[in-house]
Design a protein around this nucleic acid. Sequence first.
DNA 1: TCGTTCACG
DNA 2: GACGTACGTGAACGAG
Length: 954
Amino acid sequence: MADKQHLYLVDGSSYIFRAYHRLPPLTNPEGTPVGAVYGYTTMLWKLADDLDKAEGPTHLAVILDKSSHSFRNELYAEYKAHRPDPPEDLVPQFPLIRDATRAFSLPCIEEQGYEADDLIASYAKAATRKGWDVTIVSSDKDLMQLIGQCAEDHLDPGVAEGGCIDMLDTMKDARIGREEVIEKFGVPPEKVGDVLALMGDSVDNVPGIFGIGPKTASKLIAENGDLAAALDSAADMKPSKLRERLLEGRDMAMLSRELVELKSDIALPVALEDMKLDGIPPEPLAEFLTTHGFNSLLKRLHAGSGSPTRTTNLNPAKQETAGAPASREGNRQAPPEMPPVDRSGYECVQTMERLQAWIDRAFAARLVAVDTEASSLDSIQADLVGVSLALGPNDACYIPLGHGGSDMFAEKPEQVPLADAVATLKPLLESDAVLKAGQNIKYDINVLARHGIALGPVDDTMIISFDMDAGRQADGIGGGHGMDELSERHLGHTTLAFKDICGTGKKQIPFGEVPIARATEYAAEDADVTWRLHTLLKPRLALEGSTRVYERVDRPLIPVVAQMERHGIRVDRARLAKLSDEFATETAKLEGEIHQLAGQEFTIGSPKQLGDILFDKLGYKGGRKGKSGQYSTDQGILEGLAAQGAEIAQKVLDWRQLAKLKSTYTDALQEAINPATGRVHTSYSLVGAQTGRLSSTDPNLQNIPIRTAIGRQIREAFVPEEGNVLLAADYSQIELRLAAHMCDVPTLKEAFLAGEDIHARTAQEMFGTVDRDTRARAKTVNFAILYGISRWGLAGRLGIEPDEAQAIIDTYFQRFPGIQAYIHSTLEQVRTRGYSETLFGRKTWFPRITSTHQAERQGSERAAINAPIQGTSADIIKRAMVRMMPALDEAGLGHVRMLLQVHDELVFELPEGDVDTAGPVIERVMAEAALPAVELTVPLGIEIGHGKSWDAAH
DNA sequence: TCGTTCACG
DNA sequence: GACGTACGTGAACGAG
């Protein structure tokens, strides 16, 4: 069981008023008053710093009032009507409260039409129903109604004991519980609303009953039980002033009761789980503190001690290097005081006693590097062969578990029995108190999942490297984040290569057949190197400004993606086989016809042979030789020939389409079906695309055909289990929407806000008229913008002259002001800093932007223009993925399975009957995925569909 | 191993 | 005057 969760809800609005009156009128370097902001900042600091304390928060959020108008004004126009305007030098501090909250990377929640109190009530109730404790940081007496224990009959399913709500007044440093409420009001918390209804509240202009103050009110409620009874009791009273007032004021009291009632069933704009407090990225905080001249806090932040930031639980002292700017070219650096890798000291663990000793040490260390060896690169069907652990440089072991066995005559090495080892390792590998560091740890998560181990919490050196250094090596072979490369680059150490241990090709042996002494050298080294890389790279995250994207986006995504891979998706083998047959028949027929037309047999699949036939032998015009000296025969060329009436060109196009579909999809997908699960399990790479997108391999399920009717048949073979459906949810035009927001283009934003067809609107703006042709041209131009435009590229796409294309580009920039400025500033930033950034702080490096080679440089420029947009889109869907299962769980839909991600689409499998409940949850999570970190000025549109196949779900 | 082609967003 | 022209991917295939 996880430790008890404790949610802190900070009533930000009420705090700021009190802070204002208590603190001196400080101003920041720009002269803006910031006294109240300073007070607020120190309070958040203190709260976040209590993370490790017994009563401290595990989750924290700030709740603010959105505006002064709420549903209570509908009930009573006078509500809060007589409030004086806030002091002049407090007004500019309100928005800074949000900045301060964001600087702490904490969620900041406000909702139109509701007051902070209602949101607090809703969150507090929801949390206690889950068994979480709640502390409301406020001193507002209205909130005292909420204090107490969650009643048993209100608990969420599966929760044994309800949570408890109390309040914390940080200014008086006082906890307010049930006793304190009784002391103050003379009644328990649940009766506070009744007392308030009688006495009224002059600050909020809640009327109450004239002439009844707190004393009388609490006495009446205490004696009669509740408000209704207290009002009724007037009838039996002796004639008195009080009796008259009660009888006359009855309606006002009832209205007041409604006004003070807190609304506790508001749909929660941010999921409770997203309030998790686990390490506050220091750099946004440092930036905020610097901006406002909060130097004493800044000093504390840099000193490391007493700061609320915790990137990891190791190496807290490495802060001296914080001032050194990161090297632009890369990060070759002398390894710190770590001894060179020495494989001779690794231990091969062969007994329970030794295994237990390592586990005990790992618990004490609280950080262990883990690596699993298995029988296959496919983690879904790989059998566990061994586990290695590292606790420090050269302090590593290998635990062989599945060695020997294929050769019946060879002696099997002594090993801890697999089941025993698994049972013994499980508590360590699952312990919240021990961080597991791995290189591509998603693989290990999946291998271990087959043995009932839910590995976590985890850190991944590959992803840490990616988040800091994506694109940084211009010669990025293999992405540049593989362990061998990282070891070479950061440790100056060459690791043993897998092929040196197991060989390659036909002579390759399974890892389980490697003698255990040799296996220990290889496997323990991997754990050792991983430990070293983690120690070196993790603290660098903060210095590079990448903690936030790692901690908030990519790291939490690891187990989510691992789970998706394990789910897999069912494909209908018979259907694919039938398609394969049809495609085979058709290609054979086309092949004969093509050979006939060519007058000879040749390999149609060879562009070289095809080019020679078309342009030399048959003499068609339009031949274009590339740098390889070979004719190009790509789609565009062949379509050109077909338009000239070349029958053979059309037939080659048809042949190519069918051959492609057969070899890449219908044949390959059947091969990819896992015999154990009957499903296809792709592997996602979190470091595959420089922009932060995922990529999919073995098989690639992100390029299944959809654009043509014939290709779409393949999607019909992706099916749910009996009784289930597939549900597909897409972000509609997300990149254009993001471009509209990021470039701040008024026309485009309006169009999206109004729900218009964006390409039609573009056509209207550009060409003054909308028809099929202008809309299609506008669509092309819109994409051209996203991809970094050139007159020649656009001319090629639109089939016009470069001059005309340039005219269109000029018009576009003129009609949509903001785009050009975005391009300019993005390139400027990339040229000076070396990297581009998404709205969520993901960096992509472009070392070639300064290349003297023009084509190379221009290529980088186009990529740099696109990266923030494509990358922000990737960040958004990743955030949605992280929040998806908790949100579905919350709605009692934990059995819904998220199967696939295709850049702007998520595919789910669920029982047919749950579509109506799951759809809105999925839609909401996706639509709100940018919040609270980024507030977009355009809505994120979601299109959702379901059906008995992936095709039918669109 | 490289270049070409083409499937996707 | 030559580059070679849209951003990001992965897989299959032919050719050397």
